[in-house]
Structures are given as C-alpha cells and as structure tokens.
Simulated scan of single mutants.
Amino acid sequence: MPPVLEVPVFSAAAAKVAVEHGATRLEVNRAGSYAAGGLTPTLAEVEAIADAVPVPLRIMIRPRRPQVEQADFLYTDDEFQQMRRELAAFVASGLLQHDRGDGFVFGILKENSTGRLGVDIERNRELVQAARPYACAFHRAFDLVLGDAAAADKRHAESALAAIRECGFSGVLTAGGPGSRGALDHAAMLKELVSTAITAGTNAPCLEIIVGGGVRSSNVRTLAAQVLRGSNKARHAVSFHSSCLVDSAAAILLGAEGEGVSGEEVEQIGRTLASV
C-alpha cells in the first residue's frame, strides 16, 4: 500500500475533486481560511463533505488567525474553551465515523521561562480525551517546537515527539522545521523523526509522521526517497500532506479564490507515492 495522501480542503467541491483524483484522507477547514493556515469549519461545511466522500476526515480545530503580536498556537483560556466547545459539537454531531478513520487536527503550545515554545501537554491531552474515540493529529505547531536549530538538535526533537505521545495524539503534521522552508529542506530532520517514531513504537502504537509543507508533485519523489530510505517500517509510519492547489490563474478562472484543488496535481502525487 502506498503512503496516505492527505489533502486539506476548504469546500465540498474541493473535497470531491481531491477524492475523485486519489486523495486518501482529507483535512477539513473553514472556507476562506487557507491564508490563515486553516481554521475550524462549521458543522454545515463538515456535513456537506462527510456526505460526499468515503475517505477519512480530519477536522481542523483552530479558533483564530495568527496574530502578529505573539507566536501562533498560544491560546487564551477563552480560546481554549472555544476549541473544547467546537470539538465537542463535532463529536456529538453524528457526522464523524470512527470506522472510517475520522478525527481531528489541532495544536496548543506554551512558552517556558526562557521564551522557548513547547507542547502544552495538559490542554492538548484534555482535547484528545474529549475527542475519543476519534484519532487526533498534532498540527504544524510542532515545527515551532522544533525551533530554528532543529536540524542539529536530535535530542530536542525526540523530547518533543515524546510530549506528543504523552498527550495521546496518534500523529503529527510537520515540515521538520519552522519558517518558510519546506519539508524537502528539512528532510534530514524528518528522517530522524520517523526513526524516533518507529523506535518508540515498538512497545506502543507508532506515531504517524505526516509530512507537510511545500510538498508538490515536482519534489515528492525526492522527498519520499530521503524520508523513507527503503524502510518498510517507515512506509507504515509516514503519510504525505499537500494542498494540491490549482495555480493562481486557474483559480481566478474557476472562481476558487485560491482554494480549489488541482485534480492533476493530486493524481501526480498519488502515482509517485505508489511507485516509491
């Protein structure tokens, strides 16, 4: 089996295109929130997608856009309670299917005394428990935890993954490092994360490493080769996440406002992953 190809979508139309062309999981976000990195969708938006596709859904739980004056994924008590309410509403809605593999994606950070960002274990664990029986993946907030020195700081990365596991997450979405550099630039760290997830999973369920951040048909073969390196265990621990957006000119013609999915891009990535 090829690795999972997860595509973030912002409408039922985009979800349909993604699945018809080979996406094997969808991350569901509020319409119009791509520029913000994805925000919590409405129940109506999830309902429209849940009724239209057979693949697993991962619902984004993110209460607001990034704020310039502070690091992202640091939430107030009011924002945390909003996340709790939104997650509880989805769990109670009957829209999600555990057997299909539906779940959630979110991430809450905290700042330590030195100003370094870390995983807020208590609040993340509370949301993971509230989401049961649905799986939860930690958002790309993880890249901020890794920090600018991530490529040279293996022990810190191992500690960060241990915190994710302690919260009860089943996976983590990551580019392997922060900033505008994509997953291909952080391939060495991603390989370390996969190795750590496999090793730690010998006595517990293996964390899924969801590789995302600039994943495109033009680079996914190289990226997969570097991250997987021919390991069968790695193939079972790694998924790939790509927006597969239509280009800007096509988006204007389609009225997609930059959030339309390119079926051709989905197909190309899917074919490549099936062949690595």
Rank of each mutant, 00 (worst) to 15 (best):
M1W: 08
P2H: 12
V4N: 10
V4I: 11
V4G: 03
V9Y: 01
A13W: 06
A14F: 05
A15M: 12
V19N: 07
H21F: 10
T24L: 02
T24M: 06
L26P: 07
E27P: 04
E27T: 07
E27V: 14
V28I: 13
A31P: 00
G32L: 08
A35M: 02
T42E: 01
L43R: 15
L43Y: 02
E45L: 04
V46K: 00
E47C: 03
P54Y: 01
R58A: 14
R58E: 12
P63M: 04
R64L: 00
R64G: 00
R65Q: 09
Q67C: 06
E69I: 01
E69L: 03
E69Q: 05
A71E: 07
A71R: 02
A71S: 15
F73C: 01
T76L: 05
T76S: 15
D77F: 02
D78E: 07
E79F: 01
E79D: 08
Q82M: 07
R84S: 13
R85L: 02
V91Q: 11
V91P: 11
A92H: 13
H98K: 13
D102M: 09
D102K: 10
V105G: 09
F106S: 10
L109Q: 10
D120P: 07
I121M: 03
R123P: 00
R125W: 03
L127W: 03
A130R: 15
A130Q: 15
A130N: 09
A130S: 14
A131D: 11
A131Q: 08
P133R: 01
F138N: 11
F142E: 02
F142H: 06
V145T: 15
A149M: 10
A149N: 10
A150F: 10
A151I: 06
A151T: 14
A152C: 03
D153P: 14
D153K: 03
R155K: 08
R155T: 11
H156A: 06
H156M: 03
H156I: 01
S159K: 11
L161V: 13
L161N: 08
A162Q: 14
I164H: 10
I164S: 11
R165I: 06
G168S: 07
A175E: 07
G177N: 06
G177D: 10
R181Q: 14
R181N: 12
G182H: 01
H186P: 02
A187G: 03
L190G: 03
L193G: 06
T199W: 06
T199P: 00
A200E: 05
A200Y: 03
P205N: 10
I209A: 00
G212A: 07
V215C: 09
R216F: 00
S217N: 11
N219L: 05
N219W: 08
N219S: 11
R221A: 12
R221F: 00
T222M: 11
A224N: 04
Q226D: 06
V227S: 05
V227F: 04
L228R: 02
N232G: 10
A234H: 12
R235G: 01
H236I: 03
V238N: 15
S239G: 09
F240M: 06
F240G: 02
S242A: 15
S243R: 14
D247C: 07
A249T: 15
A249N: 08
A250C: 11
A251H: 04
A251G: 15
L254R: 15
G255H: 08
A256W: 00
A256Q: 03
E257M: 02
E259Q: 15
G260N: 13
V261A: 08
V261G: 07
S262C: 13
I269L: 01
G270A: 14
R271D: 11
L273P: 15
S275D: 12
V276F: 08
